[in-house]
Design a protein around this nucleic acid. Sequence first.
DNA 1: AATATTTTTAATCATTTGATTAAAAATATT
DNA 2: AATATTTTTAATCAAATGATTAAAAATATT
Lengths: 210, 210
Amino acid sequence: MPKAKPVTVKEASTEEKIKEAARKLFTQKGFSATRTRDIAEEAGINLALLNYYFRSKQKLFDIIMMENFRQFIRGISFNFLEQNTTLDQKITKVVSMYIDFLTQNPDLPLFILNELRNNPEQLASNIDDQVGSTRAKLFSQLKIAAEEGKIGDINPFHLMANLIGLTVFPFIARPILQKVTGVTDNQFNELMQQRKQQIPLWIKTMLSPE
Amino acid sequence: MPKAKPVTVKEASTEEKIKEAARKLFTQKGFSATRTRDIAEEAGINLALLNYYFRSKQKLFDIIMMENFRQFIRGISFNFLEQNTTLDQKITKVVSMYIDFLTQNPDLPLFILNELRNNPEQLASNIDDQVGSTRAKLFSQLKIAAEEGKIGDINPFHLMANLIGLTVFPFIARPILQKVTGVTDNQFNELMQQRKQQIPLWIKTMLSPE
DNA sequence: AATATTTTTAATCATTTGATTAAAAATATT
DNA sequence: AATATTTTTAATCAAATGATTAAAAATATT
């Protein structure tokens, strides 16, 4: 009889192969549209091994979701926590980092947004962990900048929505945007590189006091 | 033996009840996560009636998807086709229309974006039908405005991505944005109303020549 | 080398799920 | 009213799917 969990410390390749296959398929197609048999095939392993290592499809999915979510949110959070950088610098850095990240992981945002809609409560605690102190830091930095007259008194919600929206939206709406504007794949990548410089400028004018 | 399709012209309530239930569930949860039995229950009808009226889950879904897609794209397209309005006026109108529309149909954008990723080819023709002439009109209006020195020479892709992104993104990322910024439901609605005025201003400064 | 433990496999189970069928009920037609 | 047609229902089917089992193979331990 197989034991429920592998006892040895040796993180063999099988477990990792399953996780990678699961990450790919879950991220691409979501939970319901992904079959455990597809994961097994993609990983090149026997179907039973999936349950041997992860107990159930749901448990495997939860692991993938959590890791995806962490990776997605870390970029923003991490950056805004830095001391000794101006708001401008943070914005520039976060946009540049994210565009590179999204170029490598184009399916991640849609996955996250879907799962967030389906499990709003489950991720609430996770968000708190990840961005709890970030919010405070960001808000105080905005307040100081506003008091110094460097920026107008924009609602932080607008800033976050615009900053993340301008950065992420082209990736999640890529098919329709390319179709509508007639942009090729190569042009798309070029345009994304342009946006590394443009978005901070756009955000800056939005923030400017007047 | 039941006939394949209802022959009478009388568009009874049963068919419509099924469609409405299907629209609600498909739009909320997507194709794979929606069970035909859930649709039947939501519609308050016998499961067999779904197949009696629509032949299969897939066929029913295709109908819903097409209608959803049309509704979603019409707003943009329709507006930009109008003659006798300036670019400014079009932008202001499209943003205002869309924010009202999204307030009523918050699940639509994520549904569309998901399905577009899953069926890029199937909707290609549909997009062409819907926005074929719109693109030409928009591009020429942009070109004229640029030649007259009224706007800078921004790539139309950036304009579309920013305009739609700024408008739509807050709705699809609503849970995470509210969580991160601590905004309540009421505040969210207020902020969306603010954006009706703000987004056109932001877009205008992006477009301004300099 | 012998034994114990872990990992892998093929076969199978139980449930879910989309779809069908045949009969009953409701409605329309003559 | 009698008959034909359409709509609805309950029962059932067949395939898909997540999960389990028992045995075999591989690996580790003594």
